[in-house]
Design a protein around this nucleic acid. Structure first.
Lengths: 282, 282
DNA sequence: AGAAAAAATGAAATTTTATTTCATAATTAG
DNA sequence: CTAATTATGAAATAAAATTTCATTTTTTCT
């Protein structure tokens, strides 16, 4: 179990001074693993025994043992933290930060997903007469991608990123159709309306959105993808990556459910693209 | 760099006694991280200073520091590896596998990227009179996404996922234009031709593709995004995620280069979307 | 509100652990 | 076979962590 998460979790179980220690550690865990207990105590403006007690409260044997746990956490658990891009970052720095934030978001998204809900969604998709993907803005890309994937499966699939087409399509939907509505915020008015229209016309509506939003309330099933709020500061970044990965999951679930014969078919689709490509030299 | 590998590598650089230490560590590294220097010395039948010297020879500051490195190596055992989805996987299993593979690919992609090339690309983009993004299939989504992002920056930007439009646009390009061609395989004939046409017409061609491919050869600059070959078995998955993250990096570089005033403008674009959304309750 | 109990905290002492120093032993080169 | 070099460990020293205990702060109960 990751000790950084553990610290964050148990933050309110700690005493005032211990919390100071926790904050210093969370602020810069990689510095701490190279600090002595004295240095850390000074940094947090508390005494050395307090640091020691803090370590014990986290079920480690003492400070050195705590550092070991911390080192391990840094190596795997949350190597990918959300580090904000800074005005003066070099290309190298902001590249690293963006990749790491994206990975951190994927980690988070994975945790927020419920396998049962995925399973039910795959069930519905395999049984659908028609599948529609709707999204706007950044989520339009996700819908576009989903169409691209499901199209390969040779199932009736459409995608619209135009409000009017979405409405018309929703109104024409019927029992047996699955409509997937994608929106990170879950607050885009026209999409919420589209979801509502589709539902009224007996389609099954699956939302790829955040739990508890107006859109989520209109859906039969909600695939909630949580990503840290502040990664998408000025433009959608992590959210759409998480959504796309979810599409991969659904597509994979779909192919698995359809069995091996179906996957042979996929290979055929892939091979059919070959003539449009230059050969590999090897 | 993994310290266990390092020990194994440098085994023959070590003295007889130091090698004894190395062997004890390699035999059971997880025991060692909980041992004191005295315990380890005894285990290896050598003295404490020898252990200390051993640690220094591996470029660590001393025994505690060595243990930290060791702890990290142990944790790093299986970070995000490419685990293949299996026929009989449960929803939980394949979800985890896909998310982890995606993260592994991002890690790989980040390593393959050259910050200097990114910097030059950002340079060119900020100075461009017009920016075009071309892609087909899964890469069309990436181009679509790029357009969506750069459109917010209020620069002339177009995207085409249609071969004919791409050709026409390439032929009409001129000096000062930047054309970004996206293709994971780098072997799609029509895209290679489009790149070549754009170049002939004095546009600067940036390729988001794999190094050494026919497309790469036609480009002025290649942003090479390597992802493990076998992740995209039947359909493109990881490659497009890596490409999209690269788009985020370019877009971020762009905004940083344009300065803070420009970013205020971005906020305005975002705020302008507000009226199309339901309010948050808080 | 105020006293007693409980909990939290840090100074100092103690203990544990790691490192340095230095004399001796082993190895290598000439 | 000897001198030089290198490797090694015992002992001393230094550094770091932990324990003890007195003091302060907070909480609980009149």
């Amino acid at each position: 179990m990751n000790i950084l998460e553990k610290i964050a979790n148990e933050l309110d179980m700690l005493s005032k001074s211990e919390r100071k220690v926790a904050e210093v550690i969370l602020a810069s865990p990689s510095t701490v693993i190279h600090s002595s207990i004295a240095a850390l105590a000074k940094q947090a403006n508390i005494s050395e025994p307090t640091v020691n007690r803090f370590c014990r409260r986290l079920d480690t044997k003492g400070y050195p043992d705590f550092k070991l746990h911390l080192a391990q956490s840094l190596a795997n658990g949350t190597p990918y933290v959300n580090r904000h891009v800074d005005e003066n970052d070099s290309a190298e720095e902001y590249t690293a930060k963006i990749f790491e934030s994206t990975m951190a978001s994927l980690e988070l998204a994975r945790k927020s997903l419920d396998a049962n809900v995925i399973n039910r969604s795959v069930d519905l998709l395999t049984q659908a007469n028609k599948i529609s993907f709707f999204g706007l803005g950044a989520s339009a890309i996700v819908a576009h991608d989903a169409q691209n994937k499901f199209f390969r499966f040779n199932v009736p699939v459409v995608y619209f990123d135009d409000i009017l087409m979405q409405r018309m399509s929703a109104i024409n939907s019927q029992q047996g159709d699955v409509v997937i509505v994608i929106s990170h915020t879950g607050r885009t008015k026209s999409l919420v309306e589209v979801a509502s229209l589709a539902k009224e016309n007996d389609a099954t509506v699956i939302g790829i959105t955040t739990e508890g939003t107006p859109l989520a309330k209109e859906c039969n099933i909600v695939l909630s993808v949580d990503v840290s709020e502040d990664t998408d500061l000025y433009m959608p970044m992590s959210s759409r990556i998480a959504q796309l990965t979810l599409i991969d999951v659904l597509a994979t679930g779909f192919t698995l459910r359809r069995g091996s014969k179906f996957r042979d078919n996929l290979k055929k689709v892939k091979d059919s693209l070959r003539s449009s490509r230059f050969d590999r030299k090897e």
